[in-house]
Design a protein around this nucleic acid. Sequence first.
DNA 1: GAGCTAATTGAAAAACATTTTCGATTAGCG
DNA 2: CGCTAATCGAAAATGTTTTTCAATTAGCTC
Lengths: 121, 121
Amino acid sequence: MRGGGYKATPQRMAVLGALAEEQHQSLEEIRGRCLEVGLVTVYRTLSLLVELGIVRRLDLGDGARYELAEDHHHHMICESCGDISEFEECPLDPERLPPENADFEVRSHSLEVYGRCGACR
Amino acid sequence: MRGGGYKATPQRMAVLGALAEEQHQSLEEIRGRCLEVGLVTVYRTLSLLVELGIVRRLDLGDGARYELAEDHHHHMICESCGDISEFEECPLDPERLPPENADFEVRSHSLEVYGRCGACR
DNA sequence: GAGCTAATTGAAAAACATTTTCGATTAGCG
DNA sequence: CGCTAATCGAAAATGTTTTTCAATTAGCTC
Ligand SMILES: [Mn+2]
Ligand SMILES: [Mn+2]
Ligand SMILES: [Zn+2]
Ligand SMILES: [Zn+2]
């Protein structure tokens, strides 16, 4: 973070701290964990962290959510209670990407699985 | 559409016509293809069509996009020019879903592949 | 440790996106 | 041809994100 000539401000530390407390939070949830940081700064800091690759932004249909960009993983989303859980084992068959005949250089992918979690069945 | 007690209004037909012209359009793009339909009605009609399962809403990070809900397929998104292309062959290994030890009933999934299209290399 | 400066912050305003309201219109039915 | 519940749309309300700009400050220099 310092490397890029960015200042380590208390606001940025607070947002990072909020992100560390829980994955997949909305901006408002993050904001709730660092009320001393101005709204504009939360927006700006999240944009910056995403830009720097420190944070990943998720679009799961109910507005943006943010998570610390750790290892490659995927999400299971319960359509009943909205719970989001993670899993690491990538069920993609690398042989089949890119698809046959497609002239495309694959850089990354995102996979979300929808259904019902154990608690909701 | 009639089945559910909904009226087949010219506005709804126009929005469906716009959707048929191209996949993955934003609301504003759809609106551009049926200027005779009021903005509020475009919002309402898209919500209704999504509700009815006729249209699918995509969240690819740059705002909502809509497509006629045809067969199951996935998307390749060019990070350079933004082009979105489709492919049908699902590269998921069904053996590996749900992941081991996960107590989750899989209903559906969405997969997006990011990279560079042929034209952008 | 004090001083300097470019980076950062935050309150207010602006811009943009979506939903609600409610009176006017109309598709579909008899 | 009426009737009526469904639909439409302009305006207002609400919600979200970005821009502005004056005040503050982190990190560097001396
Ligand atoms: Mn995650
Ligand atoms: Mn598609
Ligand atoms: Zn659940
Ligand atoms: Zn491209």
